[in-house]
Simulated assay, not measured.
Amino acid sequence: MNNFRLELEFIPDHVAIEIEGITFTNCAFLKLLIDNQDLCSSQNFEAGLVVWDELKRSLKKVDVI
């Protein structure tokens, strides 16, 4: 049986990280770990970044929310 864990990683405003050409500061990431491996570091999910504000805007465009 696989172990499933979520971790919340805070990025303060004085730290900047870049993922897929997007710079992030003053935010939080919800990391999904399966068997202690970060799913986003898996080759199958390298492009698995979801930005909440962008997701909300996309859903509004199709009248889902």
Results as ranks from 00 to 15, higher is better:
E7A: 12
V15F: 12
L39A: 10
S42P: 03
F29N: 00
R57V: 06
N3I: 15
T23M: 14
E46C: 09
D53Q: 12
L39S: 10
R57W: 07
S42Y: 04
E20T: 08
I34P: 01
G48V: 02
F4K: 08
V64E: 06
D35C: 02
R5C: 01
I65S: 02
L32S: 04
I22G: 03
K31E: 03
I11W: 01
T23N: 13
S58P: 04
I65Y: 09
K61T: 13
V62T: 11
R57A: 14
I17R: 05
I11L: 04
T23W: 08
T23F: 10
T25V: 15
N26H: 09
V15H: 15
V51M: 08
D53W: 03
K31A: 05
H14Y: 05
M1E: 08
F4H: 11
D13L: 10
S58K: 09
F24M: 03
F45S: 02
V64H: 07
I19M: 13
D38K: 01
L6T: 11
E9R: 13
F24Q: 02
L39D: 03
A16S: 15
S58A: 11
F29M: 02
E20K: 07
D13M: 12
N44E: 13
D53K: 09
I11A: 01
L55S: 05
N44P: 06
K56D: 11
K31W: 00
F45Q: 05
I34E: 02
D13V: 01
G21Y: 00
G21D: 01
V51D: 04
L49W: 06
I11S: 07
R5L: 05
L55V: 06
E20N: 09
T25R: 13
N2I: 15
E20F: 07
E20R: 06
N3A: 12
V51G: 02
C27Q: 02
V62R: 13
I19G: 13
L6E: 13
D35F: 02
F24A: 03
V50C: 06
I22P: 02
N3W: 10
L59T: 08
A16H: 15
F29L: 04
I17E: 08
K60D: 05
N2M: 13
D63Q: 00
C27K: 07
H14M: 06
W52H: 11
V62L: 09
K60R: 13
V15P: 09
K56Q: 14
G48K: 04
D35R: 04
L55Y: 08
K61R: 12
P12A: 01
A16E: 15
L8V: 15
N3C: 12
R57Q: 13
C40P: 00
F45R: 03
S58E: 10
V50M: 06
N26Y: 08
T25N: 15
S42M: 05
R5I: 05
D13S: 14
L33R: 01
E54K: 11
F10S: 12
I65A: 00
C40M: 13
F24V: 05
Q43C: 11
E9C: 15
L55K: 06
C40W: 06
K60I: 09
L49G: 01
L59C: 07
V64T: 15
H14G: 12
I22K: 05
V50Q: 03
N2H: 14
D35H: 03
A28S: 14
T23P: 06
D35I: 07
F10Y: 15
L8R: 09
V51H: 00
